[in-house]
Design a protein around this nucleic acid. Structure first.
Length: 260
DNA sequence: ATGCCGACAGGATGTCGA
């Protein structure tokens, strides 16, 4: 099963790009983030025409996540437990059945957390703590699961061009890195890192300052796998071609092949 | 550079992203 995650930075502004990529890459399951669309205005028809079922947790203007799947989506849960009063649409979970069993899928859009010194940074850390709690529950199911999306954390110096540039950014704070590590340390593995140890492989390049042309990117989009999913992982790649297409998102897809 | 680009809501330009 080909499983992908992609922060599309508005599904409506990106519809042609996204459908072109779906036709080219033909993933079985895709987790989308930053759809910037409500459930009502999500362009379901365009994806259904390509053979995808849609589970959407949308919001006007900001955030918004979805899961597209060629197989039926079951047990759809459009929320992360906890966080009373948190109305950001940043999490949706569902279960997909493949030829060799089931896989639990989560589409994750973690808060950015900038600027430091505002309430945004503690919100980010609290949100990642809620994700930690849910990740522990999912791990206890002892089943294949892929928790994927835009974590808004740069895990190591090797995941950016120049660490000094990011020193005062929420994505690179020790607390942010620790929050991601704490989730992984439950027993999850970063699928891309399990397949490719080369440094300076990025999933995001800012629209500004010629970041793409200079390859000044960051790696902040991940698929983290339970042991049962990792056992079946065949490949994981970053599809950076897409950043060079017309009207690109600032993020590119991360794509795994998992034997499910 | 508190910039640079791009999407959004709204109908100008401020907010947000990373």
């Amino acid at each position: 099963m080909k499983i992908a995650t992609w922060n599309v930075n508005s599904v409506k502004a990106r519809l042609e790009t996204v459908t072109a990529w779906l036709k080219d890459a033909a993933p079985d399951v895709v987790a989308l983030q930053e759809i910037k669309s409500t459930d009502d205005t999500f362009p379901r028809g365009a994806f259904e025409d390509l053979g995808y079922n849609c589970a959407v947790h949308g919001q006007k203007t900001y955030n918004g996540v979805a899961i597209l799947s060629k197989r039926p989506l079951e047990d759809i849960t459009p929320r992360l437990p906890g966080g009373s009063g948190d109305d950001h649409a940043r999490y949706i979970e569902a279960v997909v059945t493949g030829d060799h069993g089931v896989v639990r899928i989560a589409s994750i859009y973690a808060p950015n957390g900038n600027p430091l010194g505002t309430e945004k940074f503690p919100y980010k850390l609290a949100w990642l703590e809620r994700l930690h709690t849910r990740a522990a529950e999912i791990l206890s199911y002892e089943e294949p699961a892929v928790l994927m999306g835009d974590y808004n954390v740069i895990p190591t110096d090797d995941d950016c061009h120049d660490p000094l540039v990011w020193m005062n950014d929420a994505l690179f704070q020790p607390q942010s890195k620790a929050a991601l590590r704490r989730i992984e340390n439950l027993g999850y593995q970063d699928a891309f890192r399990a397949c490719d140890s080369r440094p300076h492989r990025y999933t995001f390049w800012d629209y500004q300052a010629g970041s793409w042309q200079k390859d000044h990117g960051i790696r902040i989009d991940f698929q983290i796998l339970t042991p049962q999913a990792l056992d079946r992982l065949k490949t994981c790649i970053i599809d950076k071609r897409v950043r060079g297409w017309d009207k690109p998102s600032d993020h590119v897809p991360v794509v795994s092949e998992i034997d499910i």
